[in-house]
């Protein structure tokens, strides 16, 4: 380990010396870039992540001087991957730089990929608001490049987090849009009921029985097979339970569905919100009597 560290420092010092010396036609930047690359690799082997990251940034600067923008962007990405282990903010900053360069050179699909990576970093830090911003940007870029599968993955993340942030209408629109797109694809059409279930659960969270009923009619019109699914049954039964303000029935319906298709944590969280509202209503009724 110490051996790698010593080599890394040696390469870095040589690179710095190259930069401060004289060079012909930018050759000093080429030589320095080569040495910074070796240095960064050695730092990585020594698991000295911060130093590796800062060295990759120096490499990126050399590549920018050489007008090698693609290599510069890649160096920023490498720096970000090193910082990811120790300093999330630095990692995000490096990825942001990489994205800007990829945009400049027209590699929008690469930019989209790293915007998604930034979003994932924010997600891992529980910074949901920022994650949503970057997932949206990524989806936008992927859509421009007509990479619809990746765009939809990012949109689903936006929908998921928007619902967590109680922006239900936004979630509903995304899930319905993805369902609509999936219908015309023979491979994706079997996932439509899942998207419509997610949209339906968001409708339930809005606490408007008429809106739920209208939505279910709309979903039937969108996908005629939906009315025969357990997902439709679940939504319809929950809507009925809410209408009747019957917490017992609500719980029973969900328990029955969960016994066959376990609900994930996202659905459980939202359905708990619905249940809390329903309980509150029931208590209000009791207070009035």
């Amino acid at each position: 380990m110490g051996d790698h560290l010593a080599r890394a420092e040696d390469f870095e010092n040589k690179a710095e010396k190259k930069l401060s010396g004289w060079g012909l036609f930018g050759s000093k930047f080429e030589d320095a870039a080569d040495l910074f690359d070796k240095s960064a690799n050695s730092y990585k082997l020594a698991k000295s992540w911060d130093k590796a990251g800062s060295t990759y940034i120096k490499l990126a600067n050399c590549n920018l001087k050489l007008e090698s923008k693609h290599e510069a962007a890649q160096a920023y990405v490498d720096a970000a991957h090193c910082y990811k282990k120790t300093n999330i903010n630095e990692s995000v900053s490096c990825l942001d730089n990489a994205v800007n360069i990829f945009c400049e050179i027209g590699r929008l699909s690469m930019a989209a990929r790293y915007l998604k990576e930034i979003a994932e970093l924010y997600e891992s830090e529980q910074n949901i608001e920022q994650a949503v911003v970057y997932y949206e940007k990524s989806a936008d870029f992927y859509e421009n490049e007509e990479v619809n599968t990746s765009a939809n993955q990012c949109k689903q993340k936006v929908a998921q987090f928007s619902a967590q942030l109680e922006q239900y209408q936004r979630s509903i629109e995304i899930y319905e849009d993805i369902a609509r797109q999936s219908l015309s694809n023979n491979l994706l059409k079997y996932g439509v009921k899942g998207h419509l279930l997610n949209a339906g659960i968001c409708q339930l969270c809005k606490d408007d029985v008429i809106a739920i009923t209208n939505a279910l009619e709309r979903y039937q019109d969108l996908d005629p097979t939906f009315s025969g699914t357990r997902e439709y049954r679940l939504l319809a039964d929950i809507a009925a339970a809410i209408d009747e303000e019957d917490v017992g029935k609500f719980t029973e319906v969900i328990k029955e569905f969960d016994s066959m298709t376990p609900l994930d944590s996202w659905k459980t969280t939202l359905l708990l919100r619905v249940k809390e509202k329903l309980k509150a209503k029931e208590l209000e009724e009791d207070d009035l009597t």
Partner: peptide, 17 residues
Amino acid sequence: QSSVISHLDHVIVKLAR
């Protein structure tokens, strides 16, 4: 309403229903 019809394209299912 049969499963054979349900497995057709959704636009056709709509017509069949």
